[in-house]
Design a protein around this nucleic acid. Structure first.
Lengths: 155, 155
DNA sequence: AGGAAAGTTCAGTCAAGAGTGAACGTTCAT
DNA sequence: ATGAACGTTCACTCTTGACTGAACTTTCCT
């Protein structure tokens, strides 16, 4: 039996985790809570386990597990001889988080590039500001890539 | 007269900027749009100018300018002899963004610390995961601080 | 192949959050 | 000091997005 995740004062911790991590990752609160439950569970959990721990609907859990797996923080396996998937917090989950942040920043760099490209004819002040934005996101993408490498290497 | 910010195809750009930057900073969309308008404006703008450019209410603009100034991306001045404040995109706006990201990460580190402190009695797996989370956010806060210094120095 | 269990999808409900506008407080030139 | 211009606050409306549950699809054991 997996750790009962919602006993006593872990409950508040899970809500807190859920809200903040969810917000940081751009997830709905329920996804953050599911991540917290999995992180704090000793054993891998089935969707039924998660639903029990969070009192959530089937549909919601299906969507949340999808998000978590996609983000690279949670793994999904089907143990041989079992019909149900089990979900487990990954050892390299935090690298997944950092990757996620890098992806988001890369998206903003793309936006800055598009804007900057169109800026040829603009007055100096505006063009300069778009250049600075582009420069900033270029810096950030390069730096986050370096951090990710460094983090991965340190393990 | 400030640059008319909502003419033709800048409008789409502003909505796009607004949405993405707003999301990245945890702002409502209108704040992102206001940031975009100010970034692309040649001259400083009054609240009335902003309201005109964005077709927004007084109340909304009051809140949005408050957010922008607080974030360190926009400056607010009262030119001598004028009754109205003017708002202007700051030269060091992007450092403000990075600072904001650092603050958010520091908040998550605090959460990880609280959780980790309570983890003394937990089974090995869970304690190990909380340790990893703590380690990750420690790494991130340290690294982002370094990036911020580096970015500031490079200007 | 048949069928039961697991998982996904999607229309609908409900709650959270964004934006409005009127009432209120503040500021500053006279 | 006065009052007109400016800015802020807050109760309300409307929009967006999270979550539910029932219908549907897929999987896999016999």
């Amino acid at each position: 039996m997996p750790t009962p995740a919602r006993d006593g004062d872990q409950s508040a911790l899970i809500d807190d985790f859920g809200l903040h991590i969810g917000r940081a990752m751009g997830w709905p609160p329920m996804a953050g809570r599911a991540a917290a439950v999995l992180m704090l569970s000793e054993a891998p959990m089935t969707m039924a386990d998660l639903r029990g721990a969070l009192e959530a609907s089937k549909g919601s859990m299906s969507e949340m597990t999808r998000l978590l797996v996609e983000s690279g923080t949670v793994g999904r396996f089907k143990p041989p001889g079992s019909r149900q998937y089990v979900y487990e917090w990954r050892d390299d989950a935090w690298a997944g988080c950092l990757q996620h942040q890098l992806d988001a920043t890369t998206g903003l760099l793309a936006l800055a590039e598009r804007a900057h490209a169109r800026a040829a004819g603009l007055p100096g002040r505006q063009r300069e500001r778009l250049r600075e934005m582009h420069e900033y996101y270029t810096f950030m993408v390069r730096s986050l890539e370096a951090l990710l490498d460094q983090y991965k290497a340190s393990r």
